[in-house]
Write a protein that binds this DNA or RNA. Sequence first.
DNA 1: ACTATAGGCAAGCATCCGCTTGCCTATCAA
DNA 2: TTGATAGGCAAGCGGATGCTTGCCTATAGT
Lengths: 99, 99
Amino acid sequence: MLAYSLRVADVFKALADPTRRAILDELRDRDDQTLFELCTRLAMRHGLGSSRQAISQHLDVLEGAGLVVTRREGRYKFHSLDTSPLRAIIERWPISDGR
Amino acid sequence: MLAYSLRVADVFKALADPTRRAILDELRDRDDQTLFELCTRLAMRHGLGSSRQAISQHLDVLEGAGLVVTRREGRYKFHSLDTSPLRAIIERWPISDGR
DNA sequence: ACTATAGGCAAGCATCCGCTTGCCTATCAA
DNA sequence: TTGATAGGCAAGCGGATGCTTGCCTATAGT
C-alpha cells in the first residue's frame, strides 16, 4: 500500500518531462527497442537531439515508475511500454463525461 | 493545435506535485471551495501544513492547466475540479486491458 | 470611516532536475 | 587478443520550481 503510493508519485514525476513523454510515444509505436534505436528514432521522428546518456537516464526514471519494462538479451536491453500504471490516474479522478 | 500541445505539458506539470494532487483530491470530495477552506481542509484531512500563499500558487498552476475552474462571488473565489484535461492522457497511451 | 477578512503580486532563497562530461564494464566479431 | 559496440556509473553545472516573506488591493461588517 505504501509502496504503491510511492509508485504513484514516481508515475506522475515520470510523465512531467516532455522528452520522457516522447519516449513513451515512440515505444507505443514500436515495442522492444534498444537504447540506441530509441536515440536515433527520437531524433528522426520527434526532432529530439538528446544524448545517449540523457535518454538512458530518462529510461531509468520510466522504468522506476513502471511505465517501461525491459528485457536483457546478450549485450542488448530491449525496452517496452507498459501503460497499466496510468490506470491509477483515471481511477483517482474519474473523468466527467460530456463536453 | 499548438496551444493544445502547450496545455498538455501544463497538465502533466501540474500533476507532478503531491500538494497539487492533494488539492485535486480535496476538490473531488467537495466542490466550490475557497482558498481558505482548502487550506484548512488540506491541513485537517491531508496533513498538509502549506501556507496560504503556497496553496494559492498551486491553484494558479492547476487553473492554468485547466484542471481547476473558478467562480468569483464578491470577495470569495470558489474553486472546482475539472477532470476533462485528463482525457488526453488515456487517449495518448491506451491502457492495455487485463492484469 | 475604520477594521477585518479574502485574496493578489513580486522578490528572494533553497532545493530539485535534466543534461553534460568522463570514464568504466560487458558482450560480440575479427 | 584486439577492437568495436551496447550500456552503466557518478560528479558537476545551470536552470526550473516550490516556498517564504513582505506588502498591496478589494469586499464586507460595524
